[in-house]
Computed example of a mutant assay.
Amino acid sequence: MINKHTISAWVNDQPGVLQRISGLFGRRGFNIDSITVGNSEEPGLSRMIIVTTGDEQTVDQIEKQLSKLIDVIKVDHLSSSDMVARELCFIKVRVEPSKRPEILGVVNTFRASVIDIGPNSLIVQVVGELYKIEAMVELLKPYGILELTRTGATAMRRGDCWMNS
């Protein structure tokens, strides 16, 4: 069965690591739905969160290929266990001042926030799981989305474990 999978990779914080990992995906014909990279709790290590689509065999192959790269310290298939995942999205919406209360109702329902107000537009910030962001985008489409940008998912296992498989 083809599903979305979230993989965490702890990597050496070195130039070129992201390029080598994305190159591995490209050479093997694996798709990256999203990838986020940032510092981790360990100095010198970055954490990559990669969301990809495939069956269990494909994800197993991705994990094995990633583990072979020199700068990859640890690979963890997060979606194989209980995890927390979130994404950040900014949505710039065309809005006349008379329609602002209507849009603010949508924003409040989603526990989102307005982070900028222009003469004829608003920028809405929404944080949450993929389905929440998709639902918010769908509700704002009729007003006219001028711009949209997303961070991609960030995630970690629930509980007290660190780098635990």
Rank of each mutant, 00 (worst) to 15 (best):
M1K: 15
M1N: 14
S8I: 03
S8P: 03
A9F: 05
V11C: 00
V11K: 00
N12I: 11
D13Q: 12
P15N: 11
G26R: 13
G26D: 04
G26C: 03
R27D: 08
F30Y: 13
F30H: 13
N31G: 04
T36V: 04
V37I: 14
G38R: 11
S40L: 05
G44N: 02
G44E: 00
R47W: 05
I49D: 01
V51P: 06
V51T: 08
D55A: 10
I62H: 06
I62W: 11
I62S: 06
L66E: 12
S67C: 06
I70W: 02
V72D: 01
L78D: 15
S79A: 02
S79F: 00
S80F: 00
L88C: 12
C89L: 12
F90L: 06
V93P: 06
P97F: 02
K99P: 07
K99V: 13
R100A: 13
V106G: 12
V107C: 02
V107F: 04
R111K: 15
R111A: 14
A112C: 01
S113P: 03
V114T: 08
I117L: 07
I117P: 00
S121E: 15
V124K: 06
V127M: 03
G128V: 10
E129A: 08
E129Q: 14
K132V: 08
A135C: 12
V137W: 09
V137E: 10
K141Q: 09
Y143D: 04
L146P: 11
E147V: 07
T149Q: 03
T151D: 06
G152L: 11
G152C: 10
A155S: 13
A155G: 08
M156Q: 05
M156P: 09
R158T: 06
G159L: 03
C161L: 10
M163W: 01
M163D: 15
N164K: 03
